[in-house]
Amino acid sequence: MNNKLAVFVLSLLFILAGCNSVEEGVEDTPLENQRIVSLIPSNTEIVVEMGLEHRLVAVSTEDDYPESIVDNTDLMKLNAFELDEEALISLEPTHILAHESAESVYGDILDRVAEATEAEVLVVDDAESIEDIYTSITNIGEFLNEKTAAERLNESIERDINIQSSIFEDRAESIDAFVHISPQPELYTAGGNTFISDALSEIYIDNAFEDLEGYPAVSAEDVAERNPDTLISIVGMEDAALAESIENTPGFSELAISEAENQCNISPDLLSRPGPRIAEGLKAVGRCVYE
């Protein structure tokens, strides 16, 4: 009899516990109790720039900015390509910031984690323009209940981009650039509908592959045919390795982009992340191309 009672009491407890947590989920988490997980560097940078670094409980292993993120040993570093579901659940996150580009990789896992922990998930869309970056930030702001911080961040990015735009306005000669995303033998570039291409147009640089979409692989002869004036490399190679790679790509040695003065080696973190440092990336490109 005692046993039966114990089972009854226990199951009652479980049911009550269940009800309890459901109710908790409905309420908005108090801001300071937010436990944010960010799974892509650009989102992490946005969260940090909004002044919410202290609410982060986990980031991805790719996230390397700012330094304080890397140095913070309390912050769990998750491999976004092999997401550790158990580790993520044990963190009890309240807000998970994912990205469209990796949805196919971890979409199912996040669904299960959200069910287990009642965390809310925001999948940030791929940015195809600067405007899309602002939208991403606004969405993240609404998601985290920090609309003003998001607005302020957007204003400051816009101001920085306008500054760069006005600096290079006068020297606007027509410059055709080849955006170098991965080296020979798989030459990937940025097509027209990308935020990289849109950002470059802010400082009057035309994309040699504007007519293609997304991030296509192109052949060496396509590049030779379009004969761009300058190379904007965001591979993240050393200068010497980049020069050698370009020189050794069939057909490139006779193009303008094989000359050192026409090669801009830009840190990929600045130009390939749809985040707050895009203006800094434009500054680096503008200086290299025009000065």
Binding site: S219, E221, D222, A224, E225, N227
Partner: peptide, 25 residues
């Protein structure tokens, strides 16, 4: 034949494409 159309290119361009890209390939 290739992705670049040789007839629309300058002489140095098509020479580059034929001798440095297509011929070795």
């Amino acid at each position: 034949i290739g992705s670049a159309d040789l007839f629309e290119l300058t002489r140095t361009q098509w020479q580059n494409i034929i001798f440095n890209i297509r011929l070795p390939r």
